[in-house]
């Protein structure tokens, strides 16, 4: 128990310090623009297939589940409304970030972790350059740009999946479906989900980099750091989601 508390403090302190270093070095030259673009590509474009499959199947399953449930009460017509709202407000952004925590978080930690154990991070420092600038900042910025965009894509693909199931399996008119979605989902609904994604992106990148930079114990250490990184950022996303949802709820009331 004591060790677990200590680990938690280390993690909390370590990620806080890392975030501070990122902020303080962000505005110092040089800014490695090429490395940032490379990370946007790695994180954004290369994750797109995974996001499409996840979002598409989530939308399809949700339409099917709600369809079967609501049909009994003659509530099939509410499907477009319910499904699109759940996707845009919650499932799209959060599911996307969860699968990306696995894909991107694991990628970041294992890549940086191998660099740490082979002394490449030390070499960056020894050659008078900064691993925060060359390694951490490009990944943080890459995630902050790519993940929100991916989550928007996920919203569209998810609703599209629901539309397909609605039209094929539930006998809903596609035009009616689209009209319903367009009249239901409004800017606050979109923002309620979307505003969480930069927060989750930051968590994924910072936690991933932190575990990569602090790997100990050779190749085996890289494996366990990768596992810890994915578990930690997934938990942070799920717990953080509750608080962010509540925060936005209060904010909406106040509006």
């Amino acid at each position: 128990m004591k060790a677990a508390q200590l680990d938690f403090l280390k993690l909390f302190g370590g990620t806080t310090i890392l975030s501070k270093q990122v902020v303080s070095e962000l505005f110092r030259r040089p800014l490695y623009f090429r490395l940032i673009v490379e990370q946007i590509y790695q994180i954004g474009i290369r994750s797109l297939p995974l996001v499409i499959v996840t979002a598409g199947s989530t939308g399809m399953v949700m339409a099917l589940q709600f369809g079967l449930g609501l049909e009994k009460f003659g509530g099939k017509l509410y499907i477009p409304k319910i499904v699109s709202l759940s996707i845009v407000r919650e499932m799209g952004p959060v599911f996307t970030c969860l699968v990306l925590a696995a894909r991107i978080g694991a990628g970041i930690t294992s890549e940086i972790g191998s660099m740490t154990v082979t002394q490449q991070i030390d070499a960056i420092r020894a050659l008078g350059t900064s691993p925060i600038k060359r390694i951490v900042i490009p990944r943080v910025i890459g995630a902050l740009i790519a993940i929100p965009i991916l989550s928007i894509a996920a919203n569209f693909v998810g609703i599209l999946g629901a539309l397909l199931v609605g039209a094929n399996d539930l006998g809903l008119d596609p035009v009616f479906f689209v009209q319903k979605v367009l009249t239901t989902v409004w800017v606050p609904d979109f923002l309620a989900g979307f505003f969480k994604t930069p927060v989750f992106a930051g968590i994924i990148a910072i936690v991933g980099c932190y575990f990569g930079l602090t790997v100990k114990g050779g190749t085996k250490g890289v494996g366990s750091a990768t596992r810890q990184s994915v578990v930690t950022s997934s938990i942070c996303i799920l717990v953080g989601d509750y608080f962010l949802t509540k925060f936005f709820w209060i904010f909406e009331q106040w509006l």
Partner: peptide, 12 residues
Amino acid sequence: VAYVFQNGALFD
């Protein structure tokens, strides 16, 4: 001051 690492520490 340059450091020559035990295993080269080349960027792979």
